[in-house]
Write a protein that binds this DNA or RNA. Structure first.
Lengths: 177, 177
DNA sequence: CCAAACTCTATCAACTTGGTAGGGATTATC
DNA sequence: GATAATCCCTACCAAGTTGATAGAGTTTGG
């Protein structure tokens, strides 16, 4: 290995790294991970329905939760197709939860709207697929680490229901970077 | 609320939901979440460097880990800019870890390559941003739940180093959906 | 000076995301 | 049975991201 202690080198590296980090953070605009805008809308709509305890029209939900109306139509339709909500057509129609809010988990909604929760295809139970560039799955170091991430995420998402979200006002300690 | 127990309705809903689910799972092709292909390459390259314990040329790493060579160039450059690796140019040049493998965490690498780990901008410490459509952050149910997801993910990623990945062959129980 | 290696910037195709648009089907009411 | 309100469905689109590829520039050892 060539020398790590180039005179001044480490300090210079540190300064450069800091600058690059600042640039990156300053322009970090997108958070496309784990949960999409669409899933966020879906969860908010379900929370609204749970809180109302009654059926609501698309327009009502859209207005209350500030969700683009036509986009919400698609979302609710999808939730209906997957048996989360039911609908009634025609005048005075609307949407209502098909199951008690306590039985609708965040995980279920996320899987419907955003697809599998697992960070890698080789870690999904419901949509397992071997990674294209994987040689020996059992020896994959990356897989081993992300298996733990996936498990802990699933622990939270599959144990938390819409009812929990409506009820519990426990404080948030602003967390991960 | 209109009647939930339409005769036959629930069963039909169940069947439809099952069909929609099967379609969705069968065609689930992409796992763009938590970790990108690029970050996977970055981690694999670092693992290769750690295992070698010596400097390696881009070509060597690319071949050993089956990473597109020119793509790997960009990745290593980025890691260098952020102070993870150092490089030497010219004939017999190459890359080497700048810090011991035990000090390079998965979290650090992911933040460099993929950006903030937090699932929502309002949960990031390093790149906090208020959600565009958020009314009262403290009352946001979604935020509350995903704060827990983010914390647990960070717990794993910031405590696991490249050295851990190289060393520990603990078994994986195929986990989250 | 040359060849081998890293450095940097530009470009690109394919895909995803977040919506918009519009017509069709169903229902309550008059 | 007309009408208006509502859900149902499909098609389409702009902007952005991802996963590369290309190529010219710079440094180093011999």
């Amino acid at each position: 290995m060539f020398c790590l202690n180039v005179r001044g080198g480490t300090l210079l590296q540190g300064a450069k790294a800091a600058i690059y980090s600042i640039i990156q953070i300053e322009f970090a605009e997108r958070f496309p991970k784990v949960i999409s805008q669409k899933a966020k809308y879906a969860l908010r709509a379900l929370v609204a329905l749970a809180r109302a305890g009654d059926s609501m029209m698309i327009g009502e939900i859209a207005e209350a939760e500030r969700i683009p109306r036509k986009f919400l139509e698609q979302i609710l339709l999808e939730l209906k197709h997957h048996g989360i909500v039911m609908s009634k057509r025609g005048k005075f129609g609307g949407y209502a939860l098909l199951a008690p809010a306590a039985q609708i988990t965040f995980g279920a909604v996320l899987r419907i709207i955003d697809g599998p929760i697992a960070p890698l295809p080789c870690l999904s139970r419901i949509a397992y697929r071997r990674c294209a560039d994987c040689r020996a799955e059992e020896e994959c170091e990356i897989r081993r680490v992300f298996a733990r991430v996936a498990t802990s995420a699933r622990d939270v998402l599959d144990r938390t229901s819409i009812a929990d979200a409506v009820a519990a006002p426990e404080p948030v300690e602003a967390g991960a970077a």
